[in-house]
Design a protein around this nucleic acid. Structure first.
Lengths: 221, 221
DNA sequence: CAAGTGTACTTGTTAGACAATCGTAGGGTT
DNA sequence: AACCCTACGATTGTCTAACAAGTACACTTG
């Protein structure tokens, strides 16, 4: 029962489908993915499956050592802190610069409106617009390479967010509210206020998730 | 006559050798690299050559569209500006934070000493220690993902630097001096001074190279 | 001379195969 | 009985050979 996986390149399609399944929690942390197994399940040749795996390894969604089977990435507390620190480093400087010219990205505003519209749905429903919100901020810088660098973090960020939202560590309404504060500080031309609000927003999620991961080793269906 | 290309993985070895040849100017901008040609010259199978090419495309050292032959990346003025802007964005915030705690990375100091030691050599001799200097600054943040993001820029940065140094657009002694100023401002605990010095350092190289690329379309043996 | 066609070149993907390597289970030794 | 060493199975790394599909350029034709 292969999903409609036939976009442009077969490899892209398989990599995309695996990504989707990992984000959806279909493939749990530590799940081994052998090349032969994948090739059989998608009915493609092994080199094709291999290429798809390598793509996800490059995205840090899978990890594997030489000659070892690829496994879905396991996030520890220190990885989470590293990821969120990198985000905060990059994004806080982004909003600082946006605030300097009081430039509020329209796409970010739209994304937050979408989050507010989904408050009554499951917590996981706001993951997509949440990612859109932060991506929109970075993209508003208008610098291709900076956006590309940020995008290389997004795979792991998404892993974290899936975790945060499925454990319901954060209230969706609070997230929307913090986003609104960030946009408001940008509009007010308050660089430090905007950067501070963003740092707080990320620190909040970071510590909750890190504490959760340190507390229990994390097995929960 | 295949070079001694047999490190850990054959693919790594070929990708590494191609990288070296691109940096060395052996492979000029726009040079087409067909899979079959590469496979023959390194005496490996085509899929192996393909994988090496894909790795360099991921590094942005080669570019290719679907079903088209990979070519060595051609840098235009706008790409150069984009690259240097991204660098300045990231690095200026790095030195700002380092200056806040007056933390001078030992590795950066060593790298600049190495540059000074090579002032009498060819201009291209300082490329490696120059890259080491900037990498050391970012690494001093102690954040793995930030270092990884910066590293994803390094391939193109190196392309730019090779260009700057081979055209002798900048005086090596001046580079060393600007580096020294940055370190001195960090040591003095002067965040804005350090960030400003770094911005100036990068802006200098950026505008010279961009102007050069805008001036003549860039054919020179 | 312009437009459509065709052909050669290149990449995308497949199939099957073999060597190298890793993990583990089993047997031998103390 | 405990420990080390070996052998086996599973998995990955790479190769050869081949076909399908797409692109670019030249050629023919109107």
């Amino acid at each position: 029962m292969s999903q409609r996986v036939s976009a442009l390149s077969i490899i892209d399609a398989i990599a995309g489908d695996l990504r989707r399944r990992i984000y959806a929690g279909d493939l749990v942390q530590g799940t081994p993915l052998t090349e032969a197994e994948l090739a059989a399940s998608y009915d493609v040749a092994r080199p094709t499956a291999k290429a798809a795996i390598e793509r996800l390894v490059a995205d840090s969604l899978l990890e594997r050592g030489a000659h070892k089977t690829a496994r879905v990435k396991t996030l520890g507390a220190e990885s989470v802190r590293d990821i969120y620190f990198a985000r905060a480093f990059l994004e806080s400087e982004v909003v600082r610069r946006l605030a300097r010219t009081a430039t509020v990205p329209e796409a970010a505003r739209r994304a937050n409106t979408e989050i507010e519209a989904r408050l009554s749905q499951a917590a996981t429903a706001i993951i997509d617009p949440d990612m859109d919100f932060h991506t929109a901020l970075v993209d508003a810088m208008g610098n291709q390479r900076t956006s590309a660098m940020y995008r290389s973090l997004l795979g792991e960020v998404r892993l974290c967010m899936t975790r945060v939202q499925s454990l319901e560590l954060l209230d969706s309404a609070q997230i929307a509210s913090e986003h609104a504060t960030i946009l408001e500080r940008i509009a007010a031309g308050d660089p430090e206020g905007a950067a501070g609000a963003l740092d707080g927003h990320l620190a909040h999620a970071r510590e909750l998730l890190a504490a959760e991961l340190e507390g229990n080793a994390g097995h929960r269906s």
